[in-house]
Amino acid sequence: MKTKRCEHCREHLLARHAHNARFCSGRCRMAAHRAGRSDTDPVPSAMTRRKQWVRHTDRKVPLSVAGPKIRPASSTDPETWSTYSKVRRSTAGVGVGFVLSWADRLVCIDLDHALLDGELRPWARKIVAGLPETYIEVSPSGSGLHIWGFGSVERGRRIRRGDSSIEVYNRGRYMTVTRQPFEGAPSKLADLTRVINDLL
């Protein structure tokens, strides 16, 4: 069997990750995304204009760049959040993340293990096919999707789907942002209330 290599650094992928991984680490994944991005930022302005941004490590630990020193960020403490431009300029960690806050109705639907070898799995395709035009991006793992829009949930919810899961959040949580749109998703946010109600 042919050994797979990281698409960024070309190192061999570990056997336990090789069946669906494209990169050997979060650092390589984000470096590849940065190298391949276009000059046009795909992240909707409804997100970029808010001061709800953090950096994160390759283990998805949120980092604050709000002060003179890098420190852990909190998904419930706005004092640890920054502007989009500031976190984009920072080199702390491996990427950026957006903090969901109940005040702005922004919501993220996280489809875990929605992609298999780059193709949508049937259960995920059904969800995506029923969405209004809204921003969707590939998660850092390369196998999940983050669907962004407006809506609300009383509390974060997680629904198991075999070896996959669907998570819905709109407060007290930060989500990684890769800036890698899925299948040409538009740079705008739609109302996902109906979709969320159907899922929950």
Rank of each mutant, 00 (worst) to 15 (best):
Tyr174Arg: 01
Val107His: 10
Gly156Ala: 11
Val168Thr: 11
Gly26Met: 08
Thr48Asn: 09
Ser74Cys: 03
Tyr169Asn: 14
Gly149Ile: 01
Lys60Ser: 15
Asn197Trp: 14
Thr134Tyr: 00
Ala31Phe: 02
Ser101Val: 09
Leu106Trp: 04
Ala18Leu: 13
Cys24Asn: 06
Thr178Ser: 10
Trp123Tyr: 08
His56Arg: 05
Ile159Thr: 12
Ile70Lys: 06
Ile109Lys: 00
Val177Asn: 01
Pro72Phe: 12
Leu145Val: 08
Ser165Asp: 10
Arg121Tyr: 05
Lys51Gln: 12
Ile196His: 04
Asp41Met: 07
Gly184His: 07
Thr40Arg: 13
Ser64Thr: 10
Arg37Val: 11
Lys60His: 14
Ala185Ile: 00
Val54Trp: 00
Ser64Cys: 08
Trp81Gln: 05
Ser164Pro: 10
Thr80Lys: 05
Glu154Gly: 12
Arg89Ser: 13
Arg71Ile: 07
Ala46Pro: 03
His56Ile: 09
Leu120Ala: 03
Arg55Ile: 07
Arg171Glu: 11
Leu106Pro: 01
Thr83His: 08
Pro181Asp: 04
His113Ile: 09
His146Val: 01
Ala21Asp: 06
Trp53Thr: 05
Ile136Asn: 00
Pro42Lys: 06
Ala185Val: 04
Trp81Ser: 03
Lys86Pro: 00
Val65Phe: 01
Ala73Pro: 01
Arg49Ala: 11
Cys24Glu: 06
Ala31His: 11
Arg160Lys: 13
Ser139Ile: 07
Val87Leu: 05
Leu131Gly: 00
Gln180Thr: 12
Asn20Ile: 12
Thr193Leu: 04
Leu192Thr: 01
His113Glu: 12
Ile127Glu: 00
Leu13Ala: 13
Ser64Gly: 08
Ala35Phe: 10
Gly144Pro: 10
Glu11His: 12
Trp123Met: 10
Gly144Glu: 09
Lys60Tyr: 14
Leu145Asp: 00
Ile127Leu: 00
Lys188Pro: 06
Ser141Thr: 13
Phe23Gly: 03
His12Asn: 15
Ser139Arg: 10
Leu14Thr: 15
Val96Ala: 12
Arg155Met: 11
Ile109Val: 00
Val61Ala: 15
Pro72His: 13
Pro42Thr: 03
Lys60Asn: 15
Pro44His: 08
Ser101Asn: 09
Pro132Ser: 09
